[in-house]
Design a binder for these strands. Structure first.
Lengths: 204, 204
DNA sequence: CTACTTTTGCTAACGCCGTTAGAAATTATT
DNA sequence: AATAATTTCTAACGGCGTTAGCAAAAGTAG
């Protein structure tokens, strides 16, 4: 009897419709205006049904958070795989990070910009380690530093900080009026400068 | 007759008590748990009184936002004034920025980490330009780039991004378990490395 | 087909929130 | 003392996350 299978399937359909409706709402009104009630309205079910699929609102955000890290890591890994030269890989990974942030602002804001992610909340994202290992393996190959050493963590931290700073400052305060240059070129120029000097630092 | 003067004074007292109560609440429960109702309760007035002093909740946050930029700029300017050598000034300004962020996490989170500050919301902070000019004058003195040129804006942007990235990544995901080194020293080491290479970039 | 059980989904409520209209109380002025 | 102006409050509106408890539907067994 395929009854329970069908039920299972229908459950997953509702779950997915919650997520896709939520995603639509977020793209319309932003994370701050997302509400369980609006989601319930959009999926044409009553509010408590949402709670049959997610423990609470935070669990929904957390799902998107994980998807964000997953998608970003995929993008980074792809960019890396397109190259063989290690330095070039690192450069392309940085650019891919940048591109991800600006092509997926909603994701990026949820991942880094939203309500005070505590230390723990981030360490509870399993996808985080996959993301970090994309970077760390490359750095390892360039600089020959052993995994899990203090030195390589320092480098990973630097690299990540550098790009994140660039991204978030530009998400929040993009340089506009002061330029006789395309802002996009402007920013990518900074990014590439950064990476160049970072790689130089790896080699010394 | 000093009646209207007294009234004025009392008005300001209430306004200040709103702000100081709010600040206390924020330090207890964070920005996300601050509410007008709690403030009203703390100042022992009814809710609408709060609206006689601030247009809405955002106006209260905005007040703290401006105070944050003011305080940070003061710290930066003081650090700068303690030195005469321009490169040393820039280095100390960066360290002062770092120290401000970690000694005033609430401020820093409001200024950069909270609910999606749009481009406009930041350009509406008059204190922002004072903060930027502390950096830009120093960079100007080191690199000799003219104010308001594309080049100096590029440098300001780089400098700010670099530090902000370091700060916010460390606020959110501090390196802990992987180190046989004091995290504070670890981070400041990265910071100083960053600044050194940044200054090198200014000179070439 | 009927009686019973399990699952599913709903209504309605609780206690918060920001915000505001309008009444009540207080204070100043004539 | 009576009137005008100001200050302050109560009470509400619509929204939120969350949950208890009931109604409806679907499945199961005789």
């Amino acid at each position: 009897m395929g009854i329970s299978e069908r039920k299972e399937r229908q459950r997953k359909e509702v779950r997915e419709s919650i997520l896709s409706s939520a995603w639509e709402l977020v793209n319309q009104d932003g994370w701050l205006n997302l509400s369980i009630r609006k989601i319930a309205d959009a999926i044409e079910y009553s509010v408590p049904v949402v709670y049959d699929h997610f423990e609470n609102k935070e669990a929904i955000l957390s799902e998107f958070n994980r998807r964000g890290f997953q998608l970003m890591t995929e993008n980074l890994a792809e960019a890396k795989a397109r190259q063989t030269n290690h330095k070039q890989q690192l450069e392309d990974v940085a650019v891919a990070y940048w591109d991800f942030a600006f092509q997926n602002k909603e994701y990026y804001q949820l991942m880094f910009g939203l309500g005070m992610p505590t230390c723990e909340s981030l360490t509870k994202v399993p996808e985080l380690s996959a993301f970090i290992s994309v970077i760390s393996t490359t750095i390892n190959q360039i600089a020959g530093l052993p995994q899990d050493s203090t030195e390589i963590w320092l480098k990973i931290h630097s690299f990540w900080s550098m790009i994140h700073g660039l991204v978030s400052i530009n998400l929040v305060a993009p340089p506009v009026s002061h330029l006789n240059m395309n802002p996009d070129e402007f920013n990518k120029a900074i990014l590439k400068d950064f990476i160049k000097s970072f790689i130089k630092g790896l080699e010394t």
